[in-house]
Structure formats: C-alpha cells, structure tokens
Design a binder for these strands. Sequence first.
RNA 1: UGGGGAAUAGUGUAACGGUAGCACGACUGACUCUGAAUCAGUUACUCCAGGUUCGAAUCCUGGUUCCCCAGCCA
Length: 560
Amino acid sequence: MSENDSSARVDFVRTIVAEDIKSNKWQGRIATRFPPEPNGYLHIGHAKSICLNFGIAEEFGGTCNLRFDDTNPVKEEDEYINSIVEDVEWLGFDWGEQIYYASDYFAQMYAYAVELIKAGKAYVCDLNAEQMRQYRGTLTTAGKNSPCRDRSIDESLALFEKMKNGEFADGSKTLRAKIDMAHPNLNMRDAVMYRILHAAHHRSDDKWCIYPTYDWAHGLEDSLEKITHSICTLEFENHRPLYDWFLDELKIHHPQQIEFARLNLTYTIMSKRKLRKLVEGDFVNGWDDPRMPTICGLRRRGYSPEAIKNFCKTIGVAKFNSTIDMSLLEHCLREDLNKTSARVMAVLEPLKVVIDNYPPDEIEQLDAINNPQDQTAGTRKVPFSKEIYIERDDFMEEAPRKFFRLTPGREVRLRYAYFITCNSVVKDANGEITELHCSYDPATKGGDAPDGRKVKSTLHWVCAKSAVEAKVRLYETFFAKENPDKTEEGQDFTANLNPESLKELTGCKAELSLADAKAGQRFQFERLGYFCVDPDSSENELVFNRTATLRDRWKKINQK
RNA sequence: UGGGGAAUAGUGUAACGGUAGCACGACUGACUCUGAAUCAGUUACUCCAGGUUCGAAUCCUGGUUCCCCAGCCA
C-alpha cells in the first residue's frame, strides 16, 4: 500500500505532533482547531488549513474544534457562519459535539483582563487611534509611553468597568497590555486588548460594547479549549511572543503555536478582501460563482471533496511562501473525477449528420459503458437514429495531416454505434456548413468491424430525435495573469480579469439519459471534459458547468 | 537603517553528516471504441562565497534575495 511511503515522509507540523506524542508532552493528547472569522466565505486556502487541522486530529487520534473567531461584530454575520459550517461538513470533517464561538468566552476574557490590571500588567489608555500610532514609534525607532501608562490600578479598574458599562464613546479608550514601548517587535509595544465598539454582535447582541482584539482573544480561546497545537499561518509568527506573554502572565494552559505558509495558486487570488470586492463589485455572480476559488464556488463548478482533499495532501505543508501551479489542482480534480464520473455523450456545438442509408423511422437502443474505470457502474442504452449531431470540431472539410476525425471520404467510428463515412457536405448561402451526409456500415453495429478494419478516430454523438437541450458554461482561469496582483501603476487586480473566463453555449445537445439529471450531479462528457449540473437548471432546460476539460493532445498538436 | 521568518529541477515537496528522491508540468514513444485514462522513457535542482569533515542540501562564518510587522482587522 501507499500507506507506507506517505507515512514515511510527513510535513514538519506532523513531525512535531508525532514527537510530542512520543515524548508524552501533552499526556499523549492532541487537540487542534480550525478558527475562521465569520466575515467571508471559505476558499481553497482555508481548505489547506482545514485538512491540516482536522487531518492531524484524525491521524493522531485527537480532536479538532470548529471555532468561530467572532470578536469583531462590525464585520461578522450569520450568513458566513452558515456557509462555513456547510463547507466544512461538505469537505467531510467531523468537529464533534459542538461548535465553539469566541464570543462564548467574552465573560472569561473580561475576568482575565481584570486579573492583568490588578497585577499591574494592563491599563486603560485614553489615546485615540491617531495618537496611539504616533506613540507607537516606527520599525526602527522606539515608541513613547502613553501618558496613561502609570495610571493607578484602581483607576484603570474603575475605568475598564465604565468602558464595559458603555459610558464612553467608540474609540475613546482602550485597555492595553503594559509591556515595553521600546520593544523591537511592534506587537509588544503595549498591545491593545479591548476596544469600545457600540455594535450589535451576531450572537451576544448588545450585551457587550467592548470587544477583545484578536491578539488578546486568540490565545485565550486556544487556552480555554485546551488546544495542544495552535496551527496558524506565517503572518502570526510575529504575534507569538505576545500570546506567550499573555498566557504566561495569566499562568494558564499554553498551547504550542506552529506557523505554516498559506496557499497561493496561479491565476487566482486568495485574499478575502479581494474576493469580497469581486462579489460586491459584480465581477462575479456571487460567492459561489464557479470561477471563484471559494469552497462553494468549487463545489458548484463540480469539484469533489476528495479532489480538494487530495490536492491539499499533495501540496504538503511548509514555511516557504510558494505558489502552486493551477495544473496541480486540475490534476487532482481529474484524478478523482476520472474514477468516479459517469460517462455520457453530449455535443456542445452541434453539426447535424444525416445517415442516408439508415432506415428513416428506426430507433435503436445501443449499449454504452457507464464508466470504464469502474466495472460496477454498469451499462446504459443510448438511442440511435437516422439523424444525429456530432461536434463541429470533429469535422473538417480540408483536414491537415494530423487530423484523424471526420472529413469527406473518410470513415470514422461513432462511439458504441457504427462506422460512418462522410459523403457530402451541405452549406448555406454564407458557405457555412449546415449538414453532413454520411453512410453507415450495418455490420459495424456496436463499434467493431467484423473484418477487422481499423478507423483512425471515434466520435461522440447524440441522436437528434431524442436529444435533450442544454446550456453549457465553459470556464477558463478567472485571471489572465499567473499572478493577478502584478499590475501596471494605478491598476488593481481587477485589471487582470480574463475576459474569456466564462463562455455560455446554448443549443447544446445531450443524450436522453441526462433528461432527469439533478443539480450537483457530475458527469464526464466523453472526449470533452467533466461537467456538473448547475442549480440554474429548470424543468425544460439543463444547465451544465464545465468543471475541467479532458487533457487534449489534439489541441496541442493543432496549436503548433 | 529594527524585529521575525524563508531559500532544493519550470512549479511544489522530501532527504535531518553518507547514492539529491517524489509529484505536477514539459517532451518522446507504446496502447487505445474517449487524441481521455493507462504504461514506458527523457528533461531539469541544493541562493552565493568561504570554512569544518574521509564525506555537507544538512554543521560553522560571512553575504545575497524574498516574505511578514508601524489596525482600536484577523
């Protein structure tokens, strides 16, 4: 099994976890967490973190909490909570009995803050945001102490209580840790622990008008949940000394924080802020637009959870700031879809073919294999008759040398049906080909010639009489540039949108068996790619999203 | 010009003082009732300069480049 080689080399996070188990560091206990802020939708970058945290819990017999880091009421909404829960569930992870919320700890956090004030380690500060910036100093120069820094413990205590009671305006006061305004790490220059925000919280409503900052809250959340390994992204490395300071001052459970590099993908942006701009600026049709790297976008596009999880496993975890090639994601996608998708025939750009020597009223039911990669998938019947559609691309009146498909005088195979030969071409007034006339060889029924003669290619087709009408959305990379953030002066990433990212085809023809396909169902359209039924589908019209094309060697040859 | 991190084929990722491996990509070829899949093969890598060592991607010294930090965002 591949179990051996995959467990033989593990990423540096799992190495640490394994060592901690061996040394009995946490009495053999492993507890991780995935702590999103509910201020946006999850994307493939979050999937990396989800797979890491939940994956470690699964592999080492530990637990992984799903916790909403809801410390900023002005940005957070239930809509995001619901989508996040749905996405984590869809990916197939188990967070146990309950969902955790940072807001459930507000009272405890407040008590901890009082404790620090009493210990002389925190003080209420009257500086406003602008003043605080000036007092903070710069990267290369030390900051200055706040004039409130030496305020008495009792005064801070009283003021802090008044802050909590809503007696002060937003932004007029803060609670700050008393650390060191000359510290080379700016995070340690008397970090803000509480800010005044008269805003309704999505869960605690208006119970609180002071809210903990992330820096103050996050380590406490992990501590309260007895997390052993707080896995987060690189940008929090600078904050670790601050979390350490809080936890050590309070003398409470102190998880080990481990930082890893977040995921970057070519032709993709991953910033929540920018994704929101795409949604709010109507550059896309919502968070679940199939061009979005969001989990719900990928789901609608036709990605499977397995493909995403496999991708996350393949890319590994490290501290190097890397950008993964989109082709690797597509590889993982195709790898899974190839194994699992039912094959079906559909014609995107139909060209009518009349089989002159086929009986006019005959309809045959031919056997087709549902999935050559999966014997248990069985077979189905596809109807065949005198008039069929083939793909426009599969015919060329004047074919180049490497073109194996249909051309006047050449015989090709219709998949699972017959060998046909093209006899004549019908054109309209503009010279546009409207119809082909072919003849078939009845002896080749099913697709094999009894005389053993070979044919250069096999075409997919759809019986005209029974064809199901469909609309198909073809997607390409959403951005035209590998790095969408690389722009000319004065432009932003939206300047790099790929104008070809969505092309909608109407009048596509699908085989009869697709008539009752349901939203979310995935198929392989033979020779074309993987497609997924979009929720926009209705009684009388199917809508498909192209998840990915099949690899296409002809396209490459043709491009040369 | 402070502090914190990181550098291995085109892209990622292993090797933890002892043969630089794997995946993706690209390129050949075989096979094929999907120009798919599959199979076989080719390609190409230790940031630089010194040092230690029988032996260095790995240890030491110095340098280079990249990323993060001056929100009452997370």
